[in-house]
Amino acid sequence: MDDRPDRFVHETGRHRVALLETQGITKKFGGLTAVDHVSLKLADAELRCIIGPNGCGKTTLFNLITGHYKPSGGRILFQGRDITGQAVHRISRMGIGRKFQVPGVFDELTVYENIRVPFFSGQRQPMLMFGRMDAAAHDEIMANLAGIDLASKAGEPASNLSHGQRQWLEIGMVLASRPRLMLLDEPTAGMTVAETRKTARLIRRISAQTGISILVIEHDIGFIREIGGHITVMYKGAIFREGSYRQIQEDPAVREIYLGRRR
Protein backbone atom coordinates (compact mmCIF):
# COMPACT_ATOMS: atom_id res chain seq x y z
CA MET A 1 0.00 0.00 0.00
CA ASP A 2 2.95 2.33 0.43
CA ASP A 3 4.14 2.54 -3.12
CA ARG A 4 2.39 5.80 -3.71
CA PRO A 5 3.84 8.12 -6.30
CA ASP A 6 5.16 11.38 -5.02
CA ARG A 7 2.65 13.99 -4.13
CA PHE A 8 1.42 15.66 -7.20
CA VAL A 9 2.05 19.37 -7.25
CA HIS A 10 -0.73 20.94 -9.09
CA GLU A 11 0.77 24.13 -10.39
CA THR A 12 4.04 22.78 -11.72
CA GLY A 13 2.48 19.58 -12.97
CA ARG A 14 5.52 18.01 -14.59
CA HIS A 15 5.08 14.74 -12.79
CA ARG A 16 1.55 14.01 -13.89
CA VAL A 17 0.76 10.65 -12.38
CA ALA A 18 -2.97 10.83 -11.95
CA LEU A 19 -4.54 8.53 -9.37
CA LEU A 20 -7.84 8.74 -11.19
CA GLU A 21 -8.35 9.71 -14.77
CA THR A 22 -11.51 9.71 -16.83
CA GLN A 23 -11.05 9.97 -20.58
CA GLY A 24 -14.09 11.30 -22.41
CA ILE A 25 -16.42 9.36 -20.15
CA THR A 26 -20.01 9.52 -21.34
CA LYS A 27 -23.34 8.18 -20.09
CA LYS A 28 -26.57 8.33 -22.01
CA PHE A 29 -29.99 7.50 -20.57
CA GLY A 30 -32.14 7.12 -23.65
CA GLY A 31 -32.04 10.50 -25.32
CA LEU A 32 -30.51 12.25 -22.32
CA THR A 33 -26.74 12.59 -22.08
CA ALA A 34 -26.26 12.74 -18.31
CA VAL A 35 -22.45 12.74 -18.48
CA ASP A 36 -20.93 14.14 -21.65
CA HIS A 37 -17.29 13.44 -22.52
CA VAL A 38 -15.91 14.23 -19.11
CA SER A 39 -12.13 14.11 -18.90
CA LEU A 40 -10.90 14.59 -15.40
CA LYS A 41 -7.56 14.00 -13.73
CA LEU A 42 -7.22 13.66 -10.01
CA ALA A 43 -3.75 13.54 -8.53
CA ASP A 44 -2.58 11.56 -5.58
CA ALA A 45 -3.48 13.28 -2.30
CA GLU A 46 -5.54 15.88 -4.12
CA LEU A 47 -8.71 17.34 -2.64
CA ARG A 48 -11.13 18.54 -5.27
CA CYS A 49 -14.71 19.82 -5.29
CA ILE A 50 -17.19 19.25 -8.06
CA ILE A 51 -20.04 21.73 -8.23
CA GLY A 52 -22.86 22.25 -10.64
CA PRO A 53 -26.61 22.80 -10.74
CA ASN A 54 -29.09 20.05 -9.92
CA GLY A 55 -29.24 17.28 -12.44
CA CYS A 56 -26.00 18.21 -14.19
CA GLY A 57 -24.63 14.69 -13.86
CA LYS A 58 -22.43 14.80 -10.77
CA THR A 59 -23.85 11.70 -9.09
CA THR A 60 -23.94 9.90 -12.41
CA LEU A 61 -20.22 10.60 -12.81
CA PHE A 62 -19.62 8.95 -9.42
CA ASN A 63 -21.78 6.00 -10.45
CA LEU A 64 -19.62 5.55 -13.52
CA ILE A 65 -16.40 5.65 -11.52
CA THR A 66 -17.64 3.12 -8.95
CA GLY A 67 -19.03 0.77 -11.60
CA HIS A 68 -22.69 1.21 -10.67
CA TYR A 69 -23.31 2.31 -14.26
CA LYS A 70 -21.55 1.10 -17.37
CA PRO A 71 -20.42 4.05 -19.47
CA SER A 72 -21.75 4.58 -22.98
CA GLY A 73 -18.30 5.71 -24.01
CA GLY A 74 -14.86 6.65 -22.72
CA ARG A 75 -12.44 5.08 -20.26
CA ILE A 76 -11.70 5.27 -16.56
CA LEU A 77 -8.19 4.69 -15.28
CA PHE A 78 -7.35 4.17 -11.63
CA GLN A 79 -3.70 3.99 -10.70
CA GLY A 80 -3.01 3.69 -14.39
CA ARG A 81 -5.24 0.60 -14.75
CA ASP A 82 -8.30 0.54 -16.90
CA ILE A 83 -11.26 -0.12 -14.61
CA THR A 84 -14.01 0.80 -17.08
CA GLY A 85 -17.12 -1.29 -16.56
CA GLN A 86 -15.72 -3.51 -13.80
CA ALA A 87 -17.97 -4.90 -11.06
CA VAL A 88 -18.84 -2.65 -8.14
CA HIS A 89 -17.22 -4.76 -5.45
CA ARG A 90 -14.01 -5.16 -7.42
CA ILE A 91 -13.64 -1.43 -7.90
CA SER A 92 -14.42 -0.92 -4.25
CA ARG A 93 -11.71 -3.41 -3.30
CA MET A 94 -9.16 -1.58 -5.41
CA GLY A 95 -9.51 1.29 -2.97
CA ILE A 96 -12.30 3.54 -4.13
CA GLY A 97 -14.56 4.39 -1.19
CA ARG A 98 -17.78 6.25 -1.57
CA LYS A 99 -20.23 8.17 0.55
CA PHE A 100 -23.61 8.16 -1.08
CA GLN A 101 -25.90 11.14 -1.44
CA VAL A 102 -28.47 9.35 0.72
CA PRO A 103 -26.67 8.31 3.93
CA GLY A 104 -25.97 4.60 3.82
CA VAL A 105 -25.30 3.83 7.46
CA PHE A 106 -26.50 0.57 8.98
CA ASP A 107 -29.35 1.78 11.16
CA GLU A 108 -29.80 -1.39 13.16
CA LEU A 109 -26.14 -1.64 14.06
CA THR A 110 -24.39 0.38 16.72
CA VAL A 111 -22.15 3.26 15.75
CA TYR A 112 -19.17 1.09 16.68
CA GLU A 113 -20.34 -1.81 14.54
CA ASN A 114 -20.92 0.55 11.63
CA ILE A 115 -17.20 1.28 11.60
CA ARG A 116 -16.40 -2.35 12.20
CA VAL A 117 -18.06 -3.46 8.95
CA PRO A 118 -15.81 -1.53 6.54
CA PHE A 119 -12.86 -1.95 8.89
CA PHE A 120 -12.72 -5.66 8.11
CA SER A 121 -13.44 -5.24 4.42
CA GLY A 122 -9.75 -5.04 3.61
CA GLN A 123 -9.37 -8.65 4.82
CA ARG A 124 -6.67 -7.51 7.18
CA GLN A 125 -7.74 -10.22 9.58
CA PRO A 126 -9.02 -13.62 8.54
CA MET A 127 -12.78 -13.48 8.61
CA LEU A 128 -13.17 -16.46 10.86
CA MET A 129 -16.42 -16.97 12.59
CA PHE A 130 -14.73 -17.28 15.91
CA GLY A 131 -12.29 -14.52 15.24
CA ARG A 132 -11.88 -11.94 17.91
CA MET A 133 -10.83 -8.40 17.52
CA ASP A 134 -7.40 -7.67 18.80
CA ALA A 135 -6.84 -4.63 20.96
CA ALA A 136 -5.10 -2.79 18.14
CA ALA A 137 -8.13 -3.12 15.88
CA HIS A 138 -10.38 -1.91 18.69
CA ASP A 139 -8.14 1.10 19.31
CA GLU A 140 -8.11 1.92 15.64
CA ILE A 141 -11.90 1.85 15.47
CA MET A 142 -12.17 4.05 18.54
CA ALA A 143 -9.63 6.48 17.05
CA ASN A 144 -11.70 6.61 13.89
CA LEU A 145 -14.79 7.42 15.98
CA ALA A 146 -12.89 10.07 17.89
CA GLY A 147 -11.91 11.63 14.55
CA ILE A 148 -15.55 12.05 13.56
CA ASP A 149 -16.54 13.12 17.06
CA LEU A 150 -18.72 10.07 17.73
CA ALA A 151 -16.65 8.15 20.28
CA SER A 152 -19.18 8.89 23.00
CA LYS A 153 -21.95 7.38 20.86
CA ALA A 154 -20.10 4.13 20.10
CA GLY A 155 -22.65 1.89 21.80
CA GLU A 156 -25.79 3.53 20.45
CA PRO A 157 -27.70 2.31 17.43
CA ALA A 158 -26.95 4.45 14.41
CA SER A 159 -30.66 5.23 14.14
CA ASN A 160 -30.26 7.44 17.23
CA LEU A 161 -27.89 9.83 15.47
CA SER A 162 -28.78 13.26 14.16
CA HIS A 163 -28.66 13.91 10.45
CA GLY A 164 -25.26 15.56 10.63
CA GLN A 165 -23.83 12.79 12.78
CA ARG A 166 -25.00 10.20 10.29
CA GLN A 167 -23.12 11.98 7.53
CA TRP A 168 -19.98 12.00 9.68
CA LEU A 169 -20.42 8.38 10.55
CA GLU A 170 -20.53 7.55 6.90
CA ILE A 171 -17.35 9.49 6.27
CA GLY A 172 -15.79 7.49 9.11
CA MET A 173 -17.02 4.28 7.50
CA VAL A 174 -15.50 5.14 4.16
CA LEU A 175 -12.28 6.05 5.91
CA ALA A 176 -12.25 2.78 7.85
CA SER A 177 -12.22 0.86 4.58
CA ARG A 178 -8.82 2.49 3.91
CA PRO A 179 -9.47 3.81 0.46
CA ARG A 180 -6.93 5.54 -1.76
CA LEU A 181 -9.66 7.62 -3.26
CA MET A 182 -12.77 8.88 -1.47
CA LEU A 183 -15.83 10.00 -3.38
CA LEU A 184 -18.12 12.11 -1.21
CA ASP A 185 -21.53 12.95 -2.62
CA GLU A 186 -22.95 16.03 -0.90
CA PRO A 187 -21.57 15.31 2.58
CA THR A 188 -23.15 18.46 4.02
CA ALA A 189 -26.64 18.12 2.58
CA GLY A 190 -29.16 19.21 5.18
CA MET A 191 -26.55 20.39 7.68
CA THR A 192 -26.58 23.60 9.69
CA VAL A 193 -23.97 26.26 8.94
CA ALA A 194 -21.89 25.22 11.93
CA GLU A 195 -22.07 21.54 10.98
CA THR A 196 -21.14 22.35 7.40
CA ARG A 197 -18.05 24.21 8.53
CA LYS A 198 -17.09 21.37 10.85
CA THR A 199 -17.47 18.89 7.98
CA ALA A 200 -15.26 20.99 5.70
CA ARG A 201 -12.57 21.04 8.37
CA LEU A 202 -12.93 17.31 8.90
CA ILE A 203 -12.45 16.60 5.22
CA ARG A 204 -9.48 18.94 5.01
CA ARG A 205 -7.92 17.26 8.00
CA ILE A 206 -8.44 13.77 6.53
CA SER A 207 -6.87 14.95 3.30
CA ALA A 208 -3.86 16.45 5.04
CA GLN A 209 -3.31 13.60 7.50
CA THR A 210 -3.90 10.59 5.28
CA GLY A 211 -2.96 11.72 1.79
CA ILE A 212 -6.09 10.05 0.45
CA SER A 213 -7.34 11.68 -2.74
CA ILE A 214 -10.80 13.12 -2.23
CA LEU A 215 -13.44 14.14 -4.73
CA VAL A 216 -16.36 16.00 -3.15
CA ILE A 217 -19.65 16.92 -4.76
CA GLU A 218 -21.08 19.98 -3.08
CA HIS A 219 -23.60 22.72 -3.52
CA ASP A 220 -22.75 24.79 -0.50
CA ILE A 221 -20.60 27.80 -1.34
CA GLY A 222 -19.42 28.25 2.24
CA PHE A 223 -18.17 24.69 2.21
CA ILE A 224 -16.31 25.10 -1.06
CA ARG A 225 -14.61 28.24 0.18
CA GLU A 226 -13.59 26.48 3.39
CA ILE A 227 -12.18 23.50 1.50
CA GLY A 228 -10.11 25.66 -0.84
CA GLY A 229 -8.29 23.72 -3.51
CA HIS A 230 -9.22 23.06 -7.07
CA ILE A 231 -12.82 23.20 -8.25
CA THR A 232 -14.46 21.55 -11.23
CA VAL A 233 -17.74 23.04 -12.44
CA MET A 234 -20.10 20.74 -14.32
CA TYR A 235 -22.97 21.91 -16.45
CA LYS A 236 -25.34 19.78 -18.49
CA GLY A 237 -23.17 16.72 -18.11
CA ALA A 238 -19.92 18.31 -19.27
CA ILE A 239 -17.03 20.04 -17.55
CA PHE A 240 -17.72 23.73 -17.78
CA ARG A 241 -14.78 25.28 -15.92
CA GLU A 242 -11.90 24.32 -13.69
CA GLY A 243 -9.99 26.60 -11.38
CA SER A 244 -9.45 27.93 -7.89
CA TYR A 245 -12.30 29.17 -5.71
CA ARG A 246 -11.49 32.76 -6.61
CA GLN A 247 -11.35 32.11 -10.34
CA ILE A 248 -14.60 30.21 -10.27
CA GLN A 249 -16.31 32.71 -8.07
CA GLU A 250 -15.33 35.61 -10.29
CA ASP A 251 -16.22 33.88 -13.53
CA PRO A 252 -19.35 35.55 -14.85
CA ALA A 253 -20.43 32.52 -16.85
CA VAL A 254 -20.28 30.32 -13.76
CA ARG A 255 -22.17 32.91 -11.77
CA GLU A 256 -24.75 32.88 -14.49
CA ILE A 257 -25.32 29.12 -14.53
CA TYR A 258 -24.73 28.35 -10.94
CA LEU A 259 -23.54 30.73 -8.29
CA GLY A 260 -25.74 33.60 -9.33
CA ARG A 261 -28.86 31.55 -9.38
CA ARG A 262 -28.32 30.17 -5.94
CA ARG A 263 -27.80 33.48 -4.22
Binding site: S92, L109, E113
Partner: peptide, 17 residues
Protein backbone atom coordinates in the same frame (compact mmCIF):
# COMPACT_ATOMS: atom_id res chain seq x y z
CA UNK B 1 -21.21 -8.05 12.48
CA UNK B 2 -20.96 -8.49 8.71
CA UNK B 3 -23.98 -10.82 8.79
CA UNK B 4 -25.96 -8.15 10.66
CA UNK B 5 -24.82 -5.52 8.18
CA UNK B 6 -25.98 -7.69 5.28
CA UNK B 7 -29.36 -8.06 6.97
CA UNK B 8 -29.64 -4.33 7.53
CA UNK B 9 -28.51 -3.09 4.11
CA UNK B 10 -27.24 -5.67 1.69
CA UNK B 11 -26.29 -3.26 -1.08
CA UNK B 12 -24.21 -1.16 1.24
CA UNK B 13 -22.41 -4.19 2.62
CA UNK B 14 -21.73 -5.35 -0.90
CA UNK B 15 -20.29 -1.99 -1.74
CA UNK B 16 -17.73 -2.40 1.02
CA UNK B 17 -16.50 -5.37 -0.94
Amino acid sequence: TIVAAVRDNEDRAEFFG
